[in-house]
Design a protein around this nucleic acid. Sequence first.
DNA 1: GGTAAACACGAGCGACCGCTCGCGTTTCTC
DNA 2: GAGAAACGCGAGCGGTCGCTCGTGTTTACC
Lengths: 219, 219
Amino acid sequence: MSESKADQPDETARPRRRQARGERRIQQLLDAAASVFCRAGYTSASTNAIAREAGVSPGTLYQFFPNKEAIAVELGERLNRRMLETHGVVFTVENATLPLRELLDAVLDPMIEFNCANPAFLTLLQSSDAPGHFLEEHAALHDSIQDRINELIGVRNPDLSPERRAHTANMAFALFKAGLGLILGHEGAEREAYVAELKTALYGYLAPVLGTEGVPARP
Amino acid sequence: MSESKADQPDETARPRRRQARGERRIQQLLDAAASVFCRAGYTSASTNAIAREAGVSPGTLYQFFPNKEAIAVELGERLNRRMLETHGVVFTVENATLPLRELLDAVLDPMIEFNCANPAFLTLLQSSDAPGHFLEEHAALHDSIQDRINELIGVRNPDLSPERRAHTANMAFALFKAGLGLILGHEGAEREAYVAELKTALYGYLAPVLGTEGVPARP
DNA sequence: GGTAAACACGAGCGACCGCTCGCGTTTCTC
DNA sequence: GAGAAACGCGAGCGGTCGCTCGTGTTTACC
């Protein structure tokens, strides 16, 4: 109870001014983490391996991240932010009113492209083995995407009950992740084939709920 | 090179006569392993935890399994065998000729029921983190189911090219696993809702390929 | 009943894990 | 250029892991 000086040890402790070198190291470490997570999964990935891959010592890694979990959280947040910044535009009202086939192209193609370039994202999204608090951030990451899908379905078909809409969004996202796994597991022509299969599957699933035709713009 | 006595140390080494007590212990250990794998995933599950859950010492566990990997392999094989014995009947020519909606019910309902009763099966099926040789058995387990689906699709629509059929079987299985994950993650009414959504999704995906009507019996 | 094998135990070995700490180097600020 | 702070290192700490081994108990077979 003798900590009444100036700084609490809990959150918002101290902003720790980073130098340009530090920011560079952080990026190196996150890139290395993405590679190692992707290769071994979250649990099997070791912080020493991440540091080695980044070309720094274990001590240096812990200059920038308080623990292993924070690395995964930060990586997930950055990837999620980057995906929404770069391709988040796809969840627009204009796209929602397109014919279903075009809507799927407009949404899926950028998503797939991003995930092919950043396979660690899917790894984090479906890392079911994970200790305690990482699961919360994991869920947050999940919901962040889920909400976009939910919203798009709501715009497309406002008559759907909230429960049904949630189920549909949840299932659609699960189907997407499943297809994405197949896509990332193949290359070249095989990959393209699975992209087509995924679109077929989502079309077949969503057509009865969302309709295949474009919906007219609201007055 | 001086091992020309009688028994090679490699495969088919010695059959080690098991007593009834031993068989019972093996079952206890596999049940415990299923529970622990399911709770923590393959990598995070510790052999000591499995032994503890089975109520035996670590040493006893290693009387029956040479290593951790062998536990997962044996568990996977037993579950797979039991599923095929109990519900493998669903992949019959008679079922293949049913109307699609009834075909899906006939195939999915037993599968879902089995996986709800044995959630460790899905855990093993999608344990992507795994060292070396477990992946081979993992793939074998995978293919064992995949082949059934492939065969069923072949009976239903013989005109499909082998490549397209393989893609369809692969994607259908991936979609099934995705839906199964949602189903196992919920209970009661929510679970039933996701069962319905999964059937809808697979119906929408397979209808254009397999046709919705029953196919006539072959002369 | 005697003996060999199967079963059971649990302390603990070696390896690796996440992470720390003491100390040296680089960079910023005045 | 002096002081502070950020950066960087790597041996190694405490802990857990998969797994072993010496020893004792139970069971099968004659």
